[in-house]
């Protein structure tokens, strides 16, 4: 574990110096956790006052007593799914970069020639990808909650967050997505030798998350606690398989003889 933490600390130092990793995340965070929820929550009143929207809401959400609360809950569910982009995007940027940069600088051989165990190397890389993702994702969920609750309380006197969906998304689904994206990124990027193709891989890996967001916006489904729990279970079942595959890819001999080095 000590060696995994040494790798983790060094990689974090490198990530902090790598703007191409944290700048997009900062932009997405500000957009989906602060900007959009602020605009939507503030403009909610004028939405509801609009007679057409009002009629539409009453038709969709029949028997509602508090129209503001109902509509706000709906909007929150629509927007909360965007927050899944953070735990998906960050590992898809960090994990391939972390592997490809090792290849570009030919540091893998001297690294695996130290007493570090292969599983410690894999754990170090996984932590590097998952810890910033989890922390950033949690900060975003908290920011989103503070923004929405503050404005909703001032405007309507209600605190719509946190909800069960919020808790499951923030503490179960986000880390599971981070883990899966990390493993897939590491497995695939072991085949690439330059940072551009690694980033290409990153953008393709998170496509399923875009698909889920798109399907929800299109109205194919609406997030609820049961739906998210089932998704968590399905994805959790995938985790051991991906871990097994990643451990095989991270075999010393594989790294030296089968990984494409620069």
């Amino acid at each position: 574990m000590k060696n995994a933490l040494i790798i983790f600390k060094k990689e974090i130092k490198e990530i902090i110096k790598n703007r191409s990793i944290w700048l997009p995340i900062l932009a997405v965070s500000i957009m989906f956790s602060v900007l959009f929820p602020t605009i939507i929550t503030i403009s909610l009143e004028s939405f509801i006052k609009d007679p057409d929207t009002n009629r539409f809401i009453l038709r969709v959400f029949q028997d509602t007593e508090n129209i503001e609360r109902t509509f706000l809950d709906f909007i929150i569910k629509q927007f909360m799914v965007f927050l899944l982009l953070i735990p998906a995007m960050l590992p898809s940027l960090i994990a391939p970069a972390s592997i490809v940069l090792e290849k570009e600088s030919n540091t893998l051989e001297p690294l695996i020639a130290t007493p570090v165990k292969t599983r410690e190397l894999l754990l170090g890389k996984t932590l590097t990808s998952m810890v910033p993702s989890f922390i950033t994702s949690l900060i975003n969920f908290i920011l989103f909650t503070i923004v929405v609750d503050s404005i909703a309380y001032i405007k309507f006197g209600i605190l719509p967050l946190p909800t069960w969906e919020w808790l499951i998304l923030a503490f179960i689904l986000s880390p599971v997505i981070s883990f899966i994206i990390t493993m897939v990124s590491m497995i695939i990027s072991s085949k690439s030798t330059d940072i551009r193709s690694a980033q290409g891989i990153g953008s393709v890996i998170i496509f399923p998350v875009y698909a889920v967001i798109g399907m929800q916006i299109a109205g194919l489904f609406i997030l609820n606690a049961w739906f998210i729990l089932i998704a968590c279970l399905v994805l959790l079942a995938l985790c051991p398989l991906l871990l097994k595959l990643a451990v095989r890819v991270f075999d010393r001999e594989n790294i030296l003889t089968k990984w494409k080095m620069k």
């Binding site: 060094k10 490198e14 110096k17």
Partner: peptide, 15 residues
């Protein structure tokens, strides 16, 4: 107990 100098120096360039 061993030290190794590989064919290419292999150093982390940014640190």
């Amino acid at each position: 107990i061993l030290g190794i100098l590989t064919e290419t120096p292999g150093m982390y360039e940014k640190i």
